[in-house]
Design a protein around this nucleic acid. Structure first.
Length: 575
RNA sequence: GGCGGUGUAGCUCAGCUGGUUAGAGCGCAGAACUCAUAAUUCUGAAGUCACUGGUUCAAGUCCAGUCACCGCUACCA
């Protein structure tokens, strides 16, 4: 048995998340964790909002609320979305509130400094007096020195595409307040990534098997690594005491540095809640731990290079303990929307808060998994969602359930029938070996092949439909009722398997089916059954009465879907 | 500009280190069946694997170039 520490990318607390985020970093992690738990693995699943950084201060200032209020509100919004989609973390916290976050972050800083992995560097930057802020490149507007375009950004001219140095902009202004910034020297600490790469991280990366999309990207990245600054001049962030930074005042850790440390501090927050404040070490400093980061592709450099470098660079503590490096980083690509990008500002989005009022989020979970950008960019299409809901779930699984249970309800006694010994062996052979290949979806999920796992669930359900067609119990009922009952009894047991297989993808539906079969208790609390064999496939007790028989999945009609498509087209006439 | 990715049946996508007639789901056509949410099952049609050239006994799968779309380009998170 292994120990899995699973994280999802920390969402930035300055806006709502959309399907692209959900499908990229959160839903697959949730499915993965549910699967591991059912396989009996010890798993810890954490997440929280990333709450520092200049973008948040600007957003909060614009609304005239405090940073912490602003952050708390978005955190609430984001958490509500996760709750609606059944994404359940052991702990969901935030980098500005997790009790030991500052402590851990400063410790990382100090140990990296002591290890010789930080260098000081002074440079001239643009500083806005009225905002009291050193301006990031993109917050400076000015004339392009190349083409003269007046509204070039500090990092790039949108007109001629030139790559700019903000100090060279002609009459620069602050994008936030419009004032003219001044030049000022500032000193920052840089993380020596090239050194860390050469010492250990490069070798570590090359020693592991990565998803192809991760591998190709990072190999190139490794060839051309530069030191990166990890401090900033501002108020909102993990404040660096001046004695830690050679007397420099007013420095905070740059947000990307402290954010991943949030994984550590939130683990500690969780173990403290469990009554074991130092229990986080069992996870982060045990070589047996499998650290798995679920992220979108925009986060690949941080989780395969920067954060591993930090984890390595802090070295051993006084008791010889080291941090583990990531075991796997199953990054997904980007998820688009009907041929275009998700864009909240342009209204090209599906607000989760509205979606949940009209649609079944369990069905959405399943569809998102079947369409997730596992190997390359993919997209949400309403017609595809409809097809998954109708042809995939309602017709294949939902209808299978009712065709079996209603039949039994009508013509037999509405209970799990006894399987007659005269027929048992032939029927189980037919079902298990001749009606299609039955495979374990969990095997695919463990390998991070989520789409395949979801497809396998449907394929497994289809096996029962073939079985019923071949045995034709509606005919047998008239000629040999005992055999008909045996056929349907066989089906009942198999429905229990389907309920099991559904749990990682659609936990609520799985439980509903479980109860329809007259079972009590939480199906997800039982051990994962794997695949049925001739010795193990009977899961139910004959004579067991059913719960209320109802359709498991509703169908989506064309008109409803058409409305959604038109709504999108209205918001983006060009695409 | 630099780097990377993608381009495979009408649609959405699989195809690891090159090897028999290129796959899945949906959609479509035909048939069977009637227990079931008009569901199910079977059969079938459909692809010059973006284009050009090259390496090889053999390339969707490797190399070069072209075209199209997308992403990244680091003090943005």
């Amino acid at each position: 048995m292994s120990k899995y520490l699973v994280t999802s990318a920390l969402p930035y607390a300055n806006g709502a998340i959309h399907f692209g985020h959900v499908v990229g970093a959160y839903l697959p992690a949730d499915v993965y964790v549910r699967t591991l738990r059912r396989l009996g693995e010890e798993v810890h699943f954490i997440c929280g909002t990333d709450e520092h950084g200049v973008a948040i201060t600007i957003g909060a200032d614009k609304e005239g609320v405090s940073y912490s209020e602003y952050v708390a509100r978005w955190r609430g919004e984001i958490e509500a979305t996760f709750a609606a989609f059944g994404i359940e973390f052991d702990l969901f916290s935030g980098t500005s509130t997790s009790p030991r976050h500052a402590e851990f972050s400063l410790e990382f800083f100090e140990r990296l400094r002591d290890g010789g992995y930080l260098q000081k560097q002074t440079s001239e930057q643009l500083y806005c007096k009225s905002c009291d802020l050193f301006l990031a490149d993109r917050y400076v507007i000015g004339g392009c020195p190349e083409c003269g375009y007046e509204h070039a950004r500090g990092d790039e001219c949108p007109k001629c595409g030139a790559w700019l140095d903000p100090l060279k902009l002609i009459s620069p202004t602050c994008k936030i307040c419009g004032e003219e910034p001044e030049r000022r020297d500032t000193t920052h600490f840089f993380l020596d990534l090239p050194k860390l790469r050469d010492e250990a991280v490069g070798e570590w990366f090359n020693s592991k098997d990565w998803k192809p999309n991760v591998d190709a990207f990072v190999r190139r990245l490794l060839e051309d690594v530069h030191s990166r600054p990890i401090t900033r001049d501002m108020r909102w962030g993990v404040e660096l005491p001046s004695e830690l930074v050679d007397g420099e005042e007013g420095k905070v850790l740059y947000v990307w540095f402290d954010a991943p440390i949030g994984y550590v501090s939130m683990t500690a927050e969780w173990t403290a809640q469990q009554g074991d404040p130092e229990g986080w070490r069992r996870w982060w400093q045990d070589p047996e731990t499998r650290l798995v980061h679920f992220i979108g592709k925009d986060n690949i450099p941080f989780h395969t290079l920067v954060f591993p470098s930090m984890l390595h660079g802090v070295g051993e503590d006084e008791e010889g303990r080291r941090f583990v490096l990531p075991w796997q980083v199953p990054a997904n690509e980007f998820y688009n929307l009907e041929g275009g990008k998700f864009s909240t500002s342009e209204g090209r989005t599906i607000p989760p808060s509205e979606f949940v009022e009209r649609y079944d989020t369990e069905v959405a979970r399943f569809h998102l998994i079947t369409s997730m950008p596992e190997t390359s960019d993919s997209e949400w299409r309403w017609r595809e969602f409809q097809a998954t809901a109708n042809a995939g779930l309602a017709d294949t699984i939902g209808n299978l359930v009712t065709r079996v249970l209603r039949f039994l309800d009508k013509h037999f006694e509405g209970v799990v029938p006894e399987i007659d010994e005269a027929h048992r062996e032939r029927l189980e052979g037919l079902l298990l070996e001749e009606c299609g290949e039955i495979r374990d979806p969990a095997v695919h999920i463990k390998d991070f092949h989520f789409r395949k796992g979801a497809e396998q669930l449907l394929a497994n359900a289809a096996v029962a439909n073939v079985f019923i067609d071949r045995t034709a119990p509606w005919k047998l009922r008239k000629t040999d009722p005992t055999e008909a009952a045996s056929v349907l009894g066989t089906c009942c047991h198999y429905l229990a398997w389907i309920a099991h297989w559904m749990t990682p993808f659609m936990p609520g539906k799985a439980q509903a089916l479980w109860e329809m079969l007259g079972q009590r208790g939480d199906v997800a609390a039982l051990p994962w059954p794997g695949t049925p064999s001739r010795d193990t496939w009977q899961l139910l007790t004959p004579g067991q009465g059913f719960g209320e028989i109802a359709g498991l999945f509703d169908k989506l009609d064309d008109e409803q879907i058409q409305v959604e498509i038109e709504k999108l087209e209205a918001s983006s006439p060009t695409s």
